[in-house]
Amino acid sequence: MMTMTIHSKNRTPIRLYSKPMKTYTAHITVSLRKAILDVQGKTVEHALHSLHMPALGNVRIGKHVELDVQAPDEERALELVTDACKKLLANPVMEDFHVRLEESQTNGVGA
């Protein structure tokens, strides 16, 4: 793999790849950090118990975000999505996030 990195002052290094771009679908789960009381989760848990499902517990309610990423490889795709999660999609003060990547079958760019 040919990789070139351009460093310019005060900027995140820009990498140029010779590899063709692929399309990935990111499945992102954002949930309240474990230390924070998840009131929605608790309420749903009580509802489940009153529906006679006592075997179910520790309910956590979160958000699901799906988005497409153009990247030369999975590593770079993960990097881009993680950056988006830290900057916007999740608030690290109160939320954790988990990313699952899937390479799109119908490759849109350069396929």
């Binding site: 309240l32 924070i36 009381l37 009131v39 929605q40 309420t43 608030n91 003060v93 109160m94």
Partner: peptide
């Protein structure tokens, strides 16, 4: 600092 989340009463 901190964050504001859903009211405990929902």
């Amino acid at each position: 600092p901190g964050a504001l989340i859903r009211n405990a009463s929902l």
